[in-house]
Simulated scan of single mutants.
Amino acid sequence: MAVSFLGRSDVSDLCLGKPRLRSLSESATVAEALAALKSSDESFISVWNKEGGVCVGKVCMVDVVCFLCKEESLLCPFSALKTPLSHVLSKVPGLVMHLEPSSSLLEAIDLILQGAQNLVVPILPTKKSSISRRKHHLQKSSTISSHNGREFCWLTQEDVIRFLLGSIGLFTPLPALSIDTLGIITSDVLAIDYYSPASSAVGAISKSITQQTSVAILDNDGTFIGEISPFNLACCDETVAAAIATLSAGDLMAYIDCGGPPEDLVTIVKARLKEMNLEKMLQEFTILSPFNNDTSLTSSSSSDEESSMRTPERHRRSYSYSTRMVRKAEAVVCHPKSSLVAVMIQAIAHRVNYLWVIEDDCSLVGIVTFSSILKVFREHLETI
Score class of each variant (00 low, 15 high):
36 A>G: 10
383 T>Q: 09
69 C>F: 10
201 A>C: 06
99 L>W: 04
381 L>S: 05
3 V>C: 10
81 L>T: 03
248 S>M: 08
323 T>W: 09
135 K>C: 12
219 D>M: 02
254 A>C: 13
84 P>C: 05
173 P>Y: 07
224 F>E: 01
271 A>S: 07
140 K>Y: 14
291 F>Y: 14
319 Y>A: 09
264 D>C: 08
81 L>W: 03
196 S>G: 02
299 S>I: 06
65 V>E: 12
141 S>R: 00
48 W>N: 12
220 N>H: 08
346 Q>I: 03
174 L>N: 00
65 V>R: 10
286 T>M: 11
72 E>F: 14
367 I>G: 08
340 L>D: 02
293 N>Y: 15
210 T>D: 15
121 V>K: 11
209 I>N: 05
246 T>W: 13
247 L>R: 01
287 I>W: 06
134 R>T: 14
218 L>M: 04
2 A>C: 02
198 A>Q: 07
351 R>H: 14
368 V>F: 04
58 K>I: 14
17 G>H: 03
240 V>W: 02
62 V>S: 09
71 E>A: 12
194 Y>C: 11
326 V>A: 00
191 A>H: 02
200 S>E: 09
115 G>R: 04
273 L>P: 06
342 A>D: 13
293 N>D: 14
165 L>S: 13
382 E>P: 02
38 K>M: 14
37 L>C: 12
118 N>Y: 15
319 Y>V: 09
223 T>D: 01
201 A>R: 02
191 A>Q: 03
158 E>S: 13
280 K>Y: 15
56 V>R: 02
274 K>T: 04
277 N>I: 06
9 S>R: 01
207 K>P: 05
79 S>T: 09
113 L>G: 02
149 G>S: 07
122 P>N: 03
54 V>M: 07
19 P>Q: 03
126 T>D: 00
207 K>I: 06
44 F>M: 09
169 G>I: 03
